[in-house]
Amino acid sequence: TAASYVFSFLLQIFSIVVFGSIVNECYVNKGSDDPELLCIFNENESACSYGIAIGIIAFFGCIFFFVVDLYFQQISSVKDRKRAVLLDLGFSGFLSFLWFVAFCFLANQWQRTKMSKGVSQGADAARAAITFSFFSIIVWVVLAVKALQRYRLGTDMSLFATDQFAADPSAAYPGYPTGSGIESTETYQSPPFTETLDTNPKGYQVPAY
């Protein structure tokens, strides 16, 4: 849908901002005479590496599922469609969790960071990475909810199709069961009033005059 394409585009931008900001401006020199570059987040290399890794994974994941959405209507197999929706649901939920961890990790390390001249130069980039990590959580959760709704809708339609309709479309409708109100030709074995009347019934004699 159009909304999914918009969300996918936003997530690509968010992921680029996060890992681009960390790569370009979140590695600073500890001192003017020290050429070694350190991670701006409390000099914790794991924080920068984690932010970069999640940003790259999210970027390529968005591209992959964007292509899947484009060709989803061309998937003829119901099982393949179900697998695609389940994969989308699982990936969106997993990325929501990873972005939540990234936001908490980066924010915690930034609070512990001691301000210096080098840190001040990359402070805006660090704040941008933290902010867009938080935005990514919201959008990925929305995509996970939409994927769950899509899966439930598809499951309901599949159940309706299999339960309400016959498996063979050429199969004839079942006939009426016997005894359902249609009168049989053998209901009356003999026509009524067929008994012969005896003109001289027994026990009755014509009187003689």
Rank of each mutant, 00 (worst) to 15 (best):
Y209A: 04
L98S: 12
A123L: 12
N24S: 08
K82F: 13
G154I: 02
V119D: 02
T1R: 10
I40F: 04
Q149F: 15
E36H: 09
Q74Y: 04
C26T: 01
F94S: 08
F65H: 07
C26R: 00
S120E: 14
F105P: 13
A107K: 10
R112T: 01
T113S: 03
Y151W: 13
M157N: 14
R127G: 02
D33H: 02
F59G: 09
V17Y: 04
A144R: 00
D33L: 04
S8Q: 10
A167D: 15
S76C: 10
C48L: 10
D168F: 14
S49P: 01
A58F: 03
I52F: 10
N24R: 11
V142G: 01
A147T: 03
I130K: 04
L89D: 00
L11E: 03
F9W: 10
L159K: 07
A53Q: 10
E195M: 15
K82S: 13
A126S: 09
G51Y: 00
I13F: 15
L197Y: 15
D163A: 15
P207T: 01
Q12Y: 04
G55C: 11
G61W: 06
T199E: 09
S170E: 15
S15K: 00
F59D: 05
A102G: 03
S49M: 08
A161K: 13
V85H: 06
E183Y: 12
Y71Q: 05
F160D: 15
G118D: 00
S170T: 14
D88K: 07
A107L: 14
V119G: 00
D163F: 14
F91K: 00
C39I: 06
Y188I: 12
S190N: 10
L153Q: 13
A123M: 10
S92P: 13
I56A: 14
A2V: 11
F65C: 05
S15C: 11
S184P: 14
N29I: 04
A171W: 15
D69S: 01
P191W: 09
I57R: 01
T185E: 14
G175M: 05
L11W: 05
I63F: 12
C48W: 00
